[in-house]
């Protein structure tokens, strides 16, 4: 589904990703861990197409297409979704209008008809229940004044509405209380299927108790320095990144 080969990218003349290789197949969940500043969000943003980043080398294939050639909106329409580490506040843009516009643009791209306001409302009410959000959020500006946890739930809500093939969750668990964490994990697990895949960026093994990964990767200084199964996360939780940092410096 997603094949990343030797991806190198940077910003403002600084190289951040120094050669990433990763292969994600349908139905899989990959967890990416790693110390602060190692490049996890950069990888996520580069995959989503943030224009500020410069691609220096490498290739990314997504569902048989050259991902790096596509505009951000095309990537989303092809089924890529990024849950932002820091969701953006957009004053003056109504959440419901935003979601409906996004959904209808994606539907139009896939050749589906627009969803009527009535059907949209019915659908969105179901999804709100899934993430335990109040319908009042729909009438507020996108993320404006939302608490940290509410912003994260809103990311999961958008994912549930847009039904991506590949979702990248960038620290969606950070800043969540235990109940919210379960809500987010439930949201993800409801979407899991043999056709969909997830890349979950997290600092905490805790989330991986709820969203059980098939693979765990450690990103350090712009490279994946170690990969393993879910036991790697437990090991990191117990021992920290010291061993990895030392090995990388040697």
């Amino acid at each position: 589904m997603l094949t990343i080969k030797n991806l190198q990218a940077g910003i403002e003349g600084k190289t951040i990703l120094k050669g990433i290789d990763l292969n994600v197949k349908p139905g899989e969940v990959h967890a990416i861990m790693g110390p602060n500043g190692s490049g996890k969000s950069t990888l996520a943003q580069v995959l989503a197409g943030r224009p500020e980043y410069e691609i220096l080398a490498g290739a990314v294939d997504f569902l048989g297409k050259d991902l790096l050639e596509m505009a951000p909106e095309e990537r989303a329409r092809e089924g890529l979704f990024l849950a932002f580490q820091y969701p953006v506040e957009i004053p003056g843009v109504n959440t419901s209008y935003f979601l409906r516009t996004a959904l209808n643009e994606i539907r139009a791209y896939r050749g589906d008809t627009k969803m009527s306001p009535g059907d949209f409302l019915k659908m969105i009410r179901e999804k709100l229940k899934l993430v335990e959000m109040d319908a009042a959020f729909l009438n507020r500006s996108v993320n404006e004044g939302f608490s940290g946890g509410e912003k994260k739930r809103n990311e999961v809500l958008q994912m549930a509405v847009l039904q991506p093939r590949l979702a990248i969750l960038d620290e969606t668990d950070s800043g969540l209380d235990i109940d919210a964490l379960k809500v987010v994990a439930d949201g993800v697990n409801k979407l899991r299927s043999k056709d969909n895949a997830f890349i979950v960026v997290t600092h905490y093994q805790r989330l991986l108790n709820y969203i059980v990964p098939d693979f765990v990767h450690v990103l350090y200084d712009g490279r994946i320095v170690q990969s393993g199964d879910k036991s790697l996360a437990l090991q990191l939780e117990a021992n920290g990144y010291d061993a990895i940092k030392t090995a990388a410096m040697a």
């Binding site: 224009p51 951000p72 957009i90 935003f98 996004a102």
Partner: peptide, 27 residues
Amino acid sequence: DGLFYLRARGIGEETARHIMVHAFAGE
């Protein structure tokens, strides 16, 4: 940032600019 957020959700660039500017003036 707002523009990228809208585009990352599948909203085309023109429409995204339209939404952002309109919201900016709307204040």
